[in-house]
């Protein structure tokens, strides 16, 4: 019996080798590929699947999506390891454009960040007057606050908010996880703590957690715009710039914008992202 087990294992190993030897060239570099580096908030919702499936069909191309935080996504683009990025941290984006790493930056869509937390709301953020007030209440109550801590767009926004409150968040109640949005929400849920989330990811995960949106009124501070940018082909001549231009055009076209508008209506009863509709961004 042992012998049989061993043989099966060796066969498995050999089979896996052959699959490795025969397939990779066909599969390693699919005919045309567009490498997209983006944030976990667009990945954790299925919006990208919807958008990319249509684009792939129309352009006979495979979109390879790297789901990273905004900070990492921008860094990946700056190292030339992606063709195009879709991110949501305007200040970091503009710095990277300034450095000459990206071109053709376009406004794609937006939504609002929300402050989520346990239903019992021990910090009483429901009655906060502004986002900064909500943050101050959490700090005062010393209840757990889970921070992304991953240099993502959401993290950048969170730090900006703390900055506005003039509070330096520290102590046992402030916990940085260094992970994506989904992980951070799950951690906050387990710890019955607060966190800052983009609306899309929260809605996509709503059924799996007990946390609820406790504060979202502050349109000014919680505004969350997404931009698409092309990796500068002058810096990295090997990027697929031609396809990137098509992709940017697609996202900002009425076709792409309508898909964004409709996404989530069926599943969540509301749109997760609001299309930019070619209007200039508010901030």
């Amino acid at each position: 019996m042992n012998k049989i087990l061993l043989k099966i294992l060796l066969l498995m190993l050999i089979a896996s080798l052959f699959s490795g030897c025969i397939q990779p060239d066909a599969k390693d570099t699919p005919a045309g590929t567009l490498s997209l580096s983006t944030t976990t908030s667009t990945c954790d919702t299925d919006l990208l699947d919807v958008l990319n499936a249509r684009f792939e069909e129309e352009n006979n191309v495979k979109v390879l999506t790297l789901c990273q935080g905004t900070g990492k996504a921008i860094a990946t683009g700056e190292m030339g390891a992606a063709d195009v990025v879709l991110v949501h941290a305007p200040s970091s984006e503009l710095e990277a454009v300034e450095r000459g790493s990206f071109i053709d930056r376009q406004f794609v869509m937006y939504n609002y960040f929300v402050i989520i937390g346990p239903v019992s709301d021990p910090a009483n953020v429901t009655h906060a007057a502004s986002a900064t007030d909500a943050f101050t209440r959490i700090a005062d109550a010393q209840v757990p606050f889970i921070s992304r801590g991953d240099n993502s767009g959401t993290h950048t926004k969170e730090l900006g908010l703390w900055n506005e409150t003039n509070i330096t968040p520290q102590g046992a109640w402030y916990q940085s996880v260094g992970k994506g949005m989904g992980d951070t929400i799950i951690t906050a849920d387990i710890k019955q703590g607060y966190t800052l989330s983009d609306r899309g990811t929260y809605l996509a995960m709503k059924d799996k957690i007990e946390l609820e949106v406790l504060f979202e009124k502050d349109k000014e501070f919680l505004y969350n715009p997404y931009h698409v940018m092309a990796v500068n082909p002058e810096k990295f001549p090997d990027v697929n710039y031609e396809m990137t231009l098509k992709y940017i055009e697609y996202l900002t076209s009425s076709e792409g914008q309508d898909l964004i508008q409709d996404y989530g209506m069926e599943e969540y009863g509301q749109a997760l992202f609001i299309p930019a509709n070619n209007t200039d961004e508010a901030v």
Binding site: G20, P24, K27, D28, T29, S35, L64, L66, E78, M79, G80, A81, F236, D238, V239
Partner: peptide
């Protein structure tokens, strides 16, 4: 393997070959 790196020209980053 990253394009900005010394072996970037091989275009292997984020492929199964890079993992191998």
């Amino acid at each position: 393997l990253v394009p900005a790196g010394p072996l970037g020209f091989l275009k292997l980053i984020f492929t199964p070959k890079a993992m191998i």
